[in-house]
Design a protein around this nucleic acid. Sequence first.
DNA 1: GGGAGATGGTTGCATATGCAACTACCATCC
DNA 2: GGATGGTAGTTGCATATGCAACCATCTCCC
Lengths: 156, 156
Amino acid sequence: MKPPLPPAHRAAWRAFISAYWRVTARIEAGLTARALPTLAWYDVLYGLYLAPGHHRRMSELADHVLLSRSGLTRLVDKLEQKGLLVRNACPSDGRASHAQLTARGVEALRKMWPTYRDGIAAHFSSRLNANELATLTALLDRLAAEPAEQAGRKES
Amino acid sequence: MKPPLPPAHRAAWRAFISAYWRVTARIEAGLTARALPTLAWYDVLYGLYLAPGHHRRMSELADHVLLSRSGLTRLVDKLEQKGLLVRNACPSDGRASHAQLTARGVEALRKMWPTYRDGIAAHFSSRLNANELATLTALLDRLAAEPAEQAGRKES
DNA sequence: GGGAGATGGTTGCATATGCAACTACCATCC
DNA sequence: GGATGGTAGTTGCATATGCAACCATCTCCC
């Protein structure tokens, strides 16, 4: 197969995939062991929590959660059924709607946060020292950044 | 929410998740643009390709691909239907079966590899220099290592 | 030999997820 | 005002994925 991709690049790629899956699986295991919802639930609720007034447009939220639009629609449906958030019409744009965190949503967030936090610490951030963590963050941020050619464009 | 998780840890965690999703999405986009199968297909075929004799036990394969057992069963079903591999009974263990790459499977692998390779290079490995790549690999490998293993090898 | 328990693999079922089509609405041009 | 094109969000459909139950087989121990 004559791979012109250097071994170091391959090793890095494999380490990247492997680390992601293993770490997230360990953290998810901690959540399910306590009968808590998945990371996606947390991300949506937390994304709303961070926003001023605890509400955000669906599209902004989808971007934050790294989920497709349709996926977010379904997830928000579930969260709304559980009473953790409500949908409000956007006053300035009839097409858009805002997801608004409820008191119960904040409560749910508080309840799951300790487990999530401990998972991140145990399986991720506490396994590296401060310098290493900073280095890792900088490298990952560069990888996540939009490619230069498409920096100004909306399509990915 | 009083997060005792330091901001640097949070930033690192978010960068980790974000980088993974964005990079893999870009690479997958390249594959689908050429009507090629997904990364999972490639990983299975390549996992077999690497093995001596181009065959491996299902369980070993599942570990390599980072997929659940049942997920692998289904994926291998599809690949077998396409004629890219065959299942053989394991001579030494009646429970186990081996997946054996076929000539067509090797062919399929050769066909998709250039696109995959270019995707990895363009969206991942070529965005960092050699030193950075080595650093990243080392850090990710430590994160991926089993907790017990990590505990025993505490250092730095 | 034969039962108890563990392991490899498959399948039923439920859930998750994405793409593409669709509706409703906004913005622009004429 | 009305047509045209673009955007926000939802839904139909197909697929992917995992957990847990299940069968067959192996290992261990008596």
